[in-house]
């Protein structure tokens, strides 16, 4: 389903991600394939552009869910606002707007980040994946499917953030322990209190068995008590 360093959830062979690009710059060990050399040069030019932009709206190109999207935004527009309000991808939510709740979590080159604490203008040349980019042709991914089966959502407002975050976890760690899942979720808040079932869903999606922590006692049991 995916290459190792590439975001698995979209398909943008032409955009060399910033992460890979920097890797190329940073370490001589990375031998950029000859065919990529030209591309690399172009990228260097693009990100090295020391031009001053704004404060008025400027052209911004985002790569979201495998699509190139051109927008005109003030530099102070966050990635979250660009995605939600300008691209109308409203899956990711604005909840705290301060990088404390995780509802806005997107994958940036496959890595979960808070889109509320990132400028859109600062997110060009990166592969952005939102929850809308996780299911293809109406086919839910494993995490989404497990969320439904385990009832890992209630009001559902935190759900897209958790789903994106846990999808990224399983991409990097296909057989996580419950401790891994808890740690991965520590930057996402849920107010309805679905955490135990979010843990269950992540483990279920990874094919790890979990035990039910719930019993139902019938009236008979109660009378006999």
């Amino acid at each position: 389903m995916q290459g190792k360093n590439k975001s698995p959830h979209n398909n943008s062979p032409n955009s060399l991600s910033r992460r890979e690009f920097l890797k190329g710059v940073g370490t001589t060990a990375v031998a950029a394939a000859a065919s990529q050399a030209e591309q690399l040069a172009a990228q260097i030019k693009e990100v090295s552009d020391e031009k001053v932009h704004g404060p008025e709206a400027v052209p911004v190109t985002l790569h979201v869910n495998g699509e190139k999207r051109k927008l005109v935004l003030e530099p102070r527009v966050t990635l979250l606002e660009a995605i939600r309000e300008h691209l109308n991808l409203t899956g990711q939510k604005e909840v705290c707007d301060r990088g404390t709740c995780g509802a806005c979590t997107v994958m940036v080159d496959g890595v979960p980040q808070y889109s509320c604490m990132k400028l859109a203008v600062d997110s060009q040349n990166e592969d952005i994946t939102t929850v809308e980019g996780l299911s293809s042709n109406g086919q839910l991914n494993k995490v989404q499917q497990a969320f439904i089966e385990c009832d890992s959502l209630m009001c559902g407002y935190c759900t897209p953030g958790f789903v994106v975050n846990l999808t990224a976890l399983l991409d990097h760690n296909p057989k996580p322990s419950e401790a891994d899942v808890r740690e991965a979720c520590s930057g996402n808040l849920c107010r309805c209190g679905t955490y135990p079932r979010i843990f269950d869903a992540a483990l279920k999606a990874a094919g790890v068995k979990t035990k039910s922590r719930v019993q139902i006692l019938s009236a008979k049991d109660i009378i006999n008590a």
């Binding site: 552009d49 530099p75 400028l119």
Partner: peptide, 10 residues
């Protein structure tokens, strides 16, 4: 946020 400019240093 108040308006600001943005630039990338290389």
């Amino acid at each position: 946020m108040k308006p600001f400019q943005y630039a990338t240093a290389s």
